[in-house]
């Protein structure tokens, strides 16, 4: 599972701890998701989607196909 969490976080200049605080999870959890070591649960995926105001498929992809609208990973 690929995701753009690190990019979206960097665009807002948030640290992993900042993002974890906003989502109600630990910094380690954010790190684990960003590095692909943990696939987040559906409730957490929806919280991430709401926080970044983007559809889920624009943040998460099951493979390395380009994200809709971005043209690249």
């Amino acid at each position: 599972m690929h995701n753009r969490l690190r990019v979206l976080r960097a665009e807002r200049e948030w640290s992993q701890a900042d993002l974890g605080e906003r989502l109600g999870v630990s910094r380690q959890a954010i790190n684990a998701i960003e590095t692909g070591k943990h696939i987040p649960s559906l409730p957490l995926v929806f919280r991430i989607s709401d926080l970044f105001e983007q559809p889920i498929e624009a943040i998460f992809r099951p493979d390395d196909r380009p994200y809709p609208g971005s043209g690249k990973f």
């Binding site: 109600g24 999870v25 630990s26 380690q28 959890a29 684990a32 998701i33 943990h38 987040p40 649960s41 957490l44």
Partner: peptide
């Protein structure tokens, strides 16, 4: 241990 489980996020629980 129960307190830890209840306070842990999904990665820790996993």
């Amino acid at each position: 241990n129960v307190m830890i489980w209840r306070r842990a996020d999904e990665v820790f629980r996993r």
